[in-house]
Design a protein around this nucleic acid. Structure first.
Length: 827
RNA sequence: GCCGAAGUGGCGGAACUGGCAGACGCACUGGACUCAAAAUCCAGCGGUGUAACAACCGUGUGGGUUCGACUCCCACCUUCGGCACCA
């Protein structure tokens, strides 16, 4: 062992050793308990950033600790390798996307290896590899054959900069999630996955995920957006047309004073045709129809009368039909009944356009609500009024009764609506997984037969400045033969959204090299679900919802035995510098490469785990990094200074009655075992786990310095040193290996069992008790730890110092808490 | 506007079940070692106050429950995150 801590040498040495010994290789099937530890795989953008370092350091601590606790740990890594940046690089620098991607992967893989992460690299997957995307295509076809995948001409979000459509989930405040350009609406033929079919299950099963943060579950719940209500049908006056509305308040149906259709609603132009209002309506629809949802919903409510009326099926009233910007075509039925008295939006709208307002809910029976006095809609519960036979019914009950009546009369029904929309998966891009569909003039759209998979993505491509996918101009790709009739056919040139690729990678890891199937069910069943999933909260909806959807579909197809992919989820916070997210534009980026070169991977890992608990944002601190590095140096020097006494020391005799500093040293050691284990495997508070190890190291320092070498108990010292090294292993694996070897041990410390504390070693003879008078600390004293409350009270109350504190006062009450304090209440 | 999380020294954070607020680290101050510096080691480090003790104040603000509140309850303020005409 060298006197100096030479991290560079050590880290290289052990990384090579791990690779040669295949120490992190995991068996597919064994008798040992399994643990699947997974971190969100990265997009190979070129270099690791600190967010990656944090994500993967957290995962590595969990994986290593679980492995040392005797689990078979599946801890894989791979690449979310399709995506737009590769194409942008190609356009900008002329490098083919495949070359660019594979180069980045090679570099980032070596960076991950430099961090000393315990991945089983033999399981590495890359979504752009034909052996991976082949099964993505196969899975697409399984959904297609099950009717969960369809093509539709639809109004969709289009990002002009990315030159592709986007899923709703990828549109953030009207802008492209990726490049922030304003998203426009286009009518296009697009492929969808029928995720809405799973709305209720996706919602219900959130309850079965106690290991997920509430925040993420709430976000998914809001996204799914379930709402209970009714569909009611109104006949259009003088025609055969009908308007169906969705409402959550059927109890207010007697208060309808107008009807509103979305601008896109087909009846708008049909009903206004030939009326005096036609020109105004057309103008309005043209103007509003061009606006994005965001533009519409952020501007003031406006609308126009379309020149037609409909009939309220409940009271026969004739009410005007309008079209307005505040009604969304894609939600519900694209039509809304206007009940201004009991809906805020309707109230605002009715006031603006002088539409009649009719009160049909009173706060309480006989407590009339006067229209003249209303300054806002009354949206709370109450009693139905002016509602024919329903008047006097409490409105909650009324909801059910009105629905029942509507169903009997054939004018409506109870229904549940969801905000969730089908997942638009086709992208007009090149660098993605080709959709395995061919179009034959005679036979129509057909799935590519399984034996022809994968539809290979050509890699020798040229990009034109038009932004058009290079696949379209490749006759060798487009032209094929029809699998049905053998005639000429054309391939689909759209590729899949990369979220499709990342929605099942956790399954492929269980059989990464299987050439016969997407995964081996037996293996997948052994490893799934993921015991711990770790990643950024930015994927709370997109990736996590899609993955849940896929898992449920695969469960239904019999491909899996679980229907939720991730049992426990940890969402880590961002890495900040100077209070804001690191970014090139702000010039506050700290590169992992630089930190590793300067201080080593162990220091980088230790700091990033120590600086904050994982769920919180982490403020980067160069000083803090130095502090972590200093700590590792301190551990190194400590071990160096006592190694000769530690090597060959006999094991601690747990039955021996140690006293004084020796006992205290042993107590500290076992306390650290207990605390670190709890913090790492229970609450994932790595910062406090590390601070506990620091306390142990400080304690050993004191023991070494205060106790002469001949007086030291070699067994206790060895136990303390060995425990320090083992407890440090998940956080700083390289230095731990080196110190383990230096203290006379054979083999990898990672193969050592995780320590289990001895409760007997934690027992103290004496404890410090605080004496409080009226809740204020007045004195501290050491008492025997075995005293029960009565004995404690007696002992304390007889002390002269305590008597002095309460002289002249009347003792009202005494609360003794053994091991902690005694509170004397006086007057 | 609605929902959620958080607010603790100069800074990052700790206090897990209502029981000594500030563990651990950073920064800073003083000392040891050194010709000197770095490194290292030792000590101090919330505020007011005192010669020093004592005492008092102190976990966003105001109230409450309790022998006792960073922790529980009510109201409010601030910051961050999510949702936002969803009928």
């Amino acid at each position: 062992m060298q006197e100096q801590y030479n991290f560079k040498e050590i880290e290289n040495k052990w990384q090579q050793y791990w690779e040669q010994q295949e120490i992190y290789k995991v068996e597919d099937l064994s008798e040992r308990p399994k643990y699947y530890c997974l971190e969100m795989f990265p997009y190979p953008s070129g270099k690791l950033h600190m967010g990656h370092v944090r994500n993967y350091s957290i995962g590595d601590v969990v994986a290593r600790c679980k492995s040392m606790q005797g689990y078979d740990v599946l801890h894989p890594m791979g690449w979310d390798a399709f995506g737009l940046p590769a194409e942008n690089a190609a356009i900008k620098h002329g490098i083919p996307p495949a070359t660019w991607t594979w180069d980045n992967i090679a570099h980032m893989r070596s960076q991950l290896k430099q961090l000393g992460l315990s991945y089983d690299w033999q399981r590495e997957v890359a979504t752009c590899h034909p052996e991976y995307y082949k099964w993505g295509q196969w899975l697409f076809l399984q959904l297609y054959k099950k009717g969960l995948c369809y093509k539709k001409h639809a109004r969709v979000n289009w990002c002009p900069d990315c030159a592709t459509v986007l899923a709703n989930e990828q549109v953030v405040e009207g802008a492209c999630e990726r490049c922030s350009s304003t998203v426009v609406q286009k009518q296009l033929d697009q492929w969808f996955f029928r995720i809405t079919e799973y709305s209720q299950r996706l919602l219900d099963d959130l309850k079965r995920l106690p290991g997920w943060p509430d925040k993420v579950k709430t976000m998914q719940e809001n996204w799914i957006g379930r709402s209970e209500g009714a569909e009611l049908t109104f006949k259009v006056d003088g025609t055969e047309d009908e308007i169906t509305v969705f409402t959550t308040r059927p109890d207010t149906v007697y208060g309808v004073t107008y009807m509103v259709l979305a601008a896109e609603h087909p009846l708008v132009s049909k009903l206004s045709a030939g009326t005096p209002e036609e020109a105004a309506v057309t103008q309005f629809v043209n103007r509003v129809g061009k606006q994005t949802e965001l533009a519409r919903t952020s501007s003031e409510k406006e609308g126009v009368f379309i020149g037609a009326y409909c009939i309220n099926p409940f009271n026969g009233e004739k009410i005007p039909i309008l079209t307005a910007n505040y009604v969304l075509y894609h939600y519900g039925t694209g039509a809304v009944m206007g009940v201004p008295a009991h809906d805020e939006r309707d109230f605002e709208f009715a006031k603006k356009y002088n539409l009649p307002i009719k009160v049909v809910i009173y706060p309480k029976e006989n407590q009339e609500l006067r229209l003249e006095e209303m300054t806002e809609a009354y949206t709370q519960d109450g009693v139905m009024a002016n509602s024919g036979p329903f008047s006097g019914t409490p409105n909650r009950q009324g909801i059910r009764k009105v629905i029942q009546y509507a169903e009997e009369q054939g004018v409506g029904r109870g229904i549940i609506n969801y905000r969730l929309r089908d997942w638009l998966i086709s992208r007009q891009r090149y660098w993605g997984n080709p959709i395995p569909i061919v179009y034959c003039e005679k036979c129509g759209a057909l799935p590519v037969p399984d034996h022809q998979l994968p539809v290979m993505l050509p890699t020798d491509v040229e990009f034109k400045p038009t932004g058009e996918s290079p696949l379209k101009s490749r006759p060798d790709f487009v032209n094929t033969t029809c699998p049905e009739c053998g005639g000429p056919a054309q391939r689909e040139t759209d590729t899949m959204d990369t979220f499709v690729d990342s929605s099942w990678y956790f399954l492929r890891y269980t059989s990464p090299r299987d050439g016969e199937q997407a995964w081996d069910k037996e293996k997948a069943d052994r490893w799934m679900g993921v015991d711990q999933y770790i990643g950024g909260v930015e994927h709370a909806i997109l990736h996590l919802l899609y993955s849940r959807f896929f898992t449920k579909v695969f469960y239904d197809l019999g491909l899996l035995s679980v229907d939720e992919p991730f049992d426990n989820l940890l969402t880590q916070g961002m890495v900040l510098k100077d209070g804001t997210k690191m970014s090139k534009s702000k010039g506050n980026v700290v590169s992992p490469e630089e930190i590793i070169a300067r201080y080593g991977a162990d220091t980088a890992r230790l700091f990033i785990l120590f600086a904050a608990p994982p769920e919180r944002d982490l403020e980067w601190s160069d000083r803090g990094v130095e502090g972590s590095h200093r700590f590792l140096n301190r551990v190194w020097r400590l071990v160096y200074s006592v190694k000769d006494q530690v090597i060959g020391a006999p094991a601690v005799d747990a039955n021996k009655n140690y006293v004084g500093v020796h006992k205290e040293m042993r107590r500290l050691t076992h306390y650290a075992m207990k605390k670190v284990t709890e913090d790492v495997t229970g609450r994932f508070n790595f910062n406090t786990a590390i601070s506990t190890i620091m306390e142990l190291v400080n304690g050993i320092h004191t023991y070494r310095d205060k106790v002469a070498e001949v007086e030291r108990d070699a067994s206790i010292l060895a136990e303390a040193i060995n425990s320090t090294i083992i407890l440090l292993t998940p956080f700083a694996p390289h230095i731990a290996e080196e110190l383990w070897a230096a203290t006379g041990h054979q083999g990898s410390v990672h193969k050592e069992p995780w320590p289990v504390f001895d409760p007997a070693a934690l027992v103290e003879d004496e404890v410090e008790i605080v004496v409080q008078i009226n809740g204020k600390v007045r004195e501290r004293l050491n008492v025997s730890a075995t005293l029960n409350p009565a004995e404690l009270q007696q002992y304390v109350m007889e002390l002269e110092s305590v008597k002095a504190l309460i002289t002249g006062k009347q003792v009202v009450k005494i609360i003794p808490v053994p091991g902690k304090l005694i509170n004397i209440v006086v007057k």
